[in-house]
């Protein structure tokens, strides 16, 4: 489904250039649940930004369903994120002015999806035990509830690949388990799930574990 070849991204800091992502060869297929662990600053978020088309690499290739998406225009990449690759960013990513249900549906409706998303959104909220929160605003939700809403938003439009940047950070065991259970169910249904974490409880049986250090990804 997604494959990177020699993917490289360099940054300059204090007049020195360093590779945040250094010639990375990586692949993930439908049904895979991959977890990347590694210390802070090792390049996990940059790698995720690259494969989601949020930032552009300096070198290498990114193939999604055999298409070289690193050559896509900004508009094509936005379309790809709107339909096939879903990105869950670190921390709180809910829109404060919209209710839970609106948070899940409106961003996708902005990209062309219709009202049918609402039914699917309610299904996901039921699955996460948040059906009574559908019309609440994010300020009335706990951290764990907010994270679950963000995850529901990432899955509501049935993308092929979901990329989650530290989705369980700062969460208690119960919330972590709810989220990981969901990821596993989604992987079993054929989606590709790619997660970065420091949380070793994510390394469940069946999970493909990668380690990233200084911009280089290796299978654990």
């Amino acid at each position: 489904m997604l494959k990177t070849k020699e993917l490289t991204k360099t940054f300059s800091r204090q007049s020195q250039t360093f590779a945040a992502v250094d010639h990375v060869d990586f692949s993930i297929n439908g049904g895979d649940f991959c977890v990347i662990t590694g210390p802070s600053g090792c390049g996990k978020s940059t790698f995720f930004h690259l494969i989601c088309g949020i930032t552009r690499g300096d070198d290498g290739e990114i193939l999604f369903d055999r298409e070289a998406i690193h050559t896509y225009s900004d508009k094509q990449l936005a379309q790809l994120r709107a339909t096939k690759i879903s990105y869950i960013m670190q921390g709180d990513s809910l829109l404060p002015n919209f209710t839970v249900l609106e948070n899940i549906c409106l961003p996708h409706q902005l990209s062309g999806f219709g009202d049918e998303l609402e039914e699917k959104a309610m299904e996901l909220l039921r699955e996460f035990g948040l059906e009574n929160m559908a019309h609440e605003y994010p300020s009335n939700l706990s951290g764990g509830e907010r994270r679950r809403v963000a995850i529901a938003r990432a899955f509501v439009h049935e993308p092929k690949l979901v990329v989650a940047d530290e989705p369980t950070s700062d969460l208690d065991e119960e919330n972590t388990a709810i989220i990981l259970d969901h990821f596993q169910r989604q992987a079993k249904s054929g989606k590709a799930i790619l997660v970065s974490t420091h949380d070793m409880s994510c390394l469940r049986p069946g999970v493909i574990h990668y380690v990233m250090r200084k911009g280089v990804i290796r299978k654990a």
Binding site: A78, R81, A82, T83, M89
Partner: peptide, 16 residues
């Protein structure tokens, strides 16, 4: 900015 970043990461184009 982060709000717009969220929308953009979910596929909203700069035009929207």
């Amino acid at each position: 900015t982060r709000e717009f970043g969220v929308l953009s990461s979910l596929g909203a184009g700069s035009g929207k």
